[in-house]
Amino acid sequence: MTETITFSTEEAAPDRNAVFEGQGIPAGVGVTQDIEDLYNTALDVLSDSAAPVAMFAEISKVDFALVYRGEGFNEPSTPVKDISARAEQLALFALTLGKSISEIITERFEAGDFAVASMLDSAASAAADRLAGIVEKRLIELLVSKGLATPSTTVLGYSPGYCGWHMSGQEKLLDFLQPGRIGISLTESFLMQPLKSISGVLVAGPADIHRFANSYPVCALCDTQSCRKRIRALPET
């Protein structure tokens, strides 16, 4: 099962707090008109220039274990390894905002329009994150339609480069997924192009499988601990 997803303009609009967080502005802080104007300019450019598209493909646990192993550089003990083992369904995914937006960000920096370029970069990153959430929801909808999920099924995505899953894992992931059809490629240093792209595995199962304590060895090196926010948002079971 492989699905390609296109998004509406509204779906691709980033969360304001997430954009401002990317600019170092805490939530709830009043901002100047200059910052509001920059934000609105960034949204306009993003709306005009981003070409968001995503795909996901079902993968068996056996195949995912091979993808996950990658080049053999993962940490020995990781949340993804444990969570995926408890999954009911797995799917690999990739999404991109397209290359135009990255080119525009570069052009704006080179033209000296630093503030717009930076705000646009934060907006694009926030938009990509929001789209990842929509991809998670779309997988649930698909699984429910096929009778493979229940109302309590939760899908969360996990990406190489985080939580001990080495960056190089992207190679086998993209080999399996073949996201060239949506314009994504991988450099030799395992960097996806276009830059505003995300890939990973979607893990479907009861909400509890996504709950883990941040006591893995790799957690001690993590500055963001962003998993805690995701876990707090999980439905109670």
């Binding site: 600019q23 170092g24 502005i25 901002v31 100047t32 200059d34 910052i35 920059l38 000296g112 329009d113 630093f114 503030a115 930076s118 705000m119």
Partner: peptide
């Protein structure tokens, strides 16, 4: 102040 304001000032500096 925040990053956007710093960058507006940086453009003015340039």
């Amino acid at each position: 102040i925040f990053l956007p304001e710093v960058l507006l000032s940086a453009r003015a500096m340039h």
